[in-house]
Every structure is written in structure tokens, then in C-alpha cells.
Design a protein around this nucleic acid. Structure first.
Lengths: 145, 145
DNA sequence: TATTGTTATACTCTATAACTATA
DNA sequence: TATAGTTATAGAGTATAACAATA
């Protein structure tokens, strides 16, 4: 059989479609972020929760879900793991609601997360040619809900 | 308890991060695309395979995976479903490889898929303010490997 | 020796329905 | 009556390891 070089263009009409490119770009970059966060034994969604809880210590599980666009029903498992890792604590507000607060280890971890996140965001933007850079975030924000 | 209005900003520092916005935008738009393709009883990955096979009828399963960045190991299940739906057929090339080709129903379905895809891509771009639009695809392509 | 197709398996994220208890 | 937290469950995409057969 022939050598595989140049037989396959590795490109396709799909690459010219913004929607398809959006999916591929997100997959590529999220795989990279996941790799970096794995060093902290965290998932991407974990890091998002930590960031949000770090900003506002009085948020309930439902609140966090609304901010991050995570279904209420998917929060318990997420929080259970963060709690098991000693990063957050559930504190009763009343007999119905509970605030999610960072533990001391959670605060320390958040500092690490921020370092990883900021480095990641910088590296991401660095890959985009300068002239396109200022337009990227505004375009994305127009698409997310 | 207080009314929930205005207590929760629904925004957060995360929204200012391109990486996070990329994830959210992709999730939002892919959910929308999935909804539209469900009308054809297809998944997003199905539609991508049909598009690629429609461009090049001599591709093997491995080739398709390379073009679409899908692991070789994930192709059989995908192709099994497309074959079960009567959309593609596996045709032996030699005793090791097989070409994935569209059936007549596959060709018809691809026409439908293209209509859905094009409408989706148009609607996506329409959501982005005009001045940011020309920069979107180039930025994404810089991120996808 | 490298590649093809495949099986098995697991992880992450997301989604829906439904239940209990409380505001 | 609406909301908070939860459980159970499922779907979709992705990933790795391993194997047999063939190029």
C-alpha cells in the first residue's frame, strides 16, 4: 500500500465552517486545560466552581449552577467531590439552603487554580494572531446564551 | 426569604476569560445544533462523518477519524449506527481496509444535513456583531491544533 | 514493523424526571 | 406554590489499552 503522505488532506470543507471550528477549537483547548488542571487533581468544572465560590462566599448550590450554567441536578456530585477533597464546606443558611464556602485548603487551592487558569488564558490568546485577538471574546460572548 | 431578583449577578469574572467563554459558547451552540439535527435523527458527529464521506468517497474509517479528530477506536460504533440507518456502507478495499461510502439514502440525507448545517452556520454568524465577524473563524483556526 | 479495524472500558460533561422538605 | 437539594438515569463525546489480521 502507498505511504500515507499527502494522500489525506487532513483538511475538509468543515474547517471553513465557524460552528465546526468552534467545536474543534473548544475541544482542543479544553483538553489542554484539563491536562494542566490534572496536576492539581481537579477537573475543569471543579476549577470553575472554586473560582465562583472564591468571588462570592454566600452562594448556594443552585446559585453556582445558575452562574456556571450547570444543571442543579449535577451540582451534588461536583460538590461532594470538592468537599471530599477538603476544598469546600456546606454551611446551613436555613433548613432548606446551604452556602458553599471555601475551606482553608480550598483558598490555597484556588490560588493555584488561578495561576494555572491565567497561564492557560494567556497561552490561548497568544496563539491567536494579534489582529484577531481583540475580537475574540466579544464574539464568544455574543454566542453564549 | 428575599426575592431572587438582582441578588445574583449571573455574571462572574469567568465570563471575561476567553477560554471559559470559548467553552460556554461551544456548549451553547452545539446544544442548539444537536437540537436541529435531532430532527433528522442524527448526532453532531454523524453529520460530520456524512459531510466528510460526501466529499471523498474513498476514505477509510481511520482516514475519517484523522480528518475529524476522532479516535480510531470510536469510529466503529459511529459507523455501525450510520450503517444501521442505511446511510453508509463499508466496502472492502483490500483484506485489511474498507472504504466508507454513502448509500442512496445517505446521499439524500447529506442534502438535508447540508441545509441544516448551512442554516445553523448562518444563524451563528448572525449573532456575532458585524465588526467582529471576519475575525472569528481565523481566531478559531489558530486554536484547533 | 506499522497500520486497520475492532472490543472493552472509563471519564467528563450534560440533560431530564421525580422525590422530599422547606421557604 | 415555588424553590433547594437530592437521587437516579441516560446520552454524547472523548480517551486509553489491547488484540488479531494484514500491509
Amino acid at each position: 500500500m502507498e505511504p500515507s503522505e499527502a494522500i489525506l488532506s487532513l483538511d475538509s470543507g468543515l474547517t471553513g465552517l465557524p460552528g465546526y471550528a468552534l467545536r474543534r477549537a473548544a475541544n482542543t483547548m479544553m483538553a489542554e486545560l484539563a491536562r494542566r488542571l490534572a496536576a492539581l487533581d481537579l477537573r475543569i468544572s471543579d476549577s470553575a466552581v472554586l473560582q465562583v465560590v472564591g468571588e462570592r462566599q454566600d452562594m448556594t448550590s443552585s446559585d453556582i449552577g445558575k452562574v456556571l450554567d450547570i444543571q442543579r441536578a449535577n451540582m451534588p456530585a461536583l460538590l461532594d467531590r470538592l468537599e471530599a477533597a477538603g476544598l469546600v464546606r456546606r454551611e446551613p443558611i436555613d433548613r432548606k439552603s446551604q452556602a458553599i464556602v471555601l475551606t482553608r485548603r480550598g483558598i490555597e487551592m484556588l490560588a493555584e487554580v488561578r495561576r494555572v487558569l491565567m497561564a492557560f488564558e494567556e497561552d490561548l490568546m497568544a496563539r491567536i494572531p494579534a489582529r484577531h485577538r481583540p475580537h475574540f471574546l466579544p464574539a464568544l460572548r455574543a454566542l453564549m446564551d
